[in-house]
Design a protein around this nucleic acid. Structure first.
Lengths: 212, 212
DNA sequence: ATTACTAATATACGAGTAC
DNA sequence: TGTACTCGTATATTAGTAA
């Protein structure tokens, strides 16, 4: 609630200059009684979000630096929600892979590109996550990075798409072969460390993956 | 308060997909007891901001279109506060000028600057607006543009300040002589078209001026 | 483990009053 | 007018319990 009234003050311009208020005018603005309007301001002052000079003719209010920070934090939340700072959160359960991951990931042709395009050298092997609902790693997404396919020892290694992500807080990436159904519910993760060991994971454990 | 919990849900991604929640996990997220967490969700559902499927294993929550609108409104408030969407709206009534406007505006010394600094060639003459309350065109405002004074045919033409504005939807600008009282209630407007004619205005008609 | 409900309690609100 | 109290009431929160 305190953020709400702080926001109202900011909309009145109290972030840039002193604003003169009376209990009743502010009350009608926030839709409350003069008493609560006054109380709200008093609380904001106690929390250090505003400074006021009260007199018998009303009060002059100004938002403090701390108050501005509080509002900015709130603003950032909404930026996250709408676009600019988009965050996507995926939940999944640890699944044991086929052991293939390690073989593929470790190929020199992939490794060099991971290092270049993702900014880290992956620990060998992948962590497999089984998702509740399919996640589409859109290729048009400018945050996704393409890892080129190549040939090695007569075998063909396909291209794949990567996307930096945080796995339970650890910086890593999603890896997905280019030729996969868009609605795959299996997510393969790589990271500079061995995720299964670092996070002490067993099959079936829940893991949070965050893309921003 | 309801906006706060709606925001938390949005941060969990509930705007784009169903999110699985249990009372206790959500409770720890919003820092409350499981009961209140449940209650909050129930309130949000009653208000139509979310849809839920509740079961004995938890609930799947998704933010409705109305909920998204509610969050957007909140987001817009913060955009206003932090500048991106700063909008000032001025209301005034059309007043007949002294006919001087045309003479001044048309001077070559002004016209060239208008064209350069405002990006359009004003139709000769100004539309005068009588404001209910004085509007201060702050000179420190980086969105205001100074038009330099000059001499012509032995007369002195003073500097003035301009600010791009939309007059009832038409792109134009406020013009104000530098040497005016800050609390003037008369607003002079210019535009690439004849405002009075384009908007079919008569003296006393209300006009909206929007600065962003 | 959940959700759902009830009852006790903490908090917020607003009328009244004094200055 | 305004602010600053007190105090009764409404609302919100939480513990306890059952399903």
């Amino acid at each position: 609630m305190e953020v709400e009234t702080l926001k109202r003050l900011a909309l009145l311009g109290a972030m840039k200059k002193d604003v003169t208020l009376s209990s009743s005018t502010f009350a009608s603005l926030i839709g409350s009684s003069p008493q609560t309007a006054l109380e709200r301001l008093s609380v904001l002052e106690e929390e250090g979000y505003i400074e006021r000079v009260v007199s018998n003719e009303g009060q002059r209010v100004r938002i403090t630096h701390e108050g501005v920070l509080r509002l900015k934090a709130e603003y950032r939340d909404y930026q996250k929600i709408f676009g600019e700072l988009q965050v996507v959160r995926i939940k999944g359960k640890v699944a044991s892979g086929l052991g293939e991951g390690q073989y593929y990931i470790s190929r020199e042709g992939y490794m060099r590109q991971f290092s270049e395009k993702l900014g880290f050298d992956p620990s060998p092997g992948t962590l497999n996550l089984l998702l509740d609902e399919p996640f589409a790693l859109s290729e048009s997404d400018f945050k996704s990075v393409r890892i080129e396919g190549f040939e090695d020892e007569g075998r063909t290694f396909g291209a794949c798409w990567c996307r930096l992500a945080k796995i339970d807080g650890i910086k890593g990436a999603i890896v997905r072969p280019e030729r996969t159904s868009r609605t795959a519910t299996l997510l393969e993760l790589i990271a500079p460390v061995n995720l299964r060991r670092s996070l002490s994971l067993s099959d079936g454990d829940e893991v949070d993956v965050i893309l921003e």
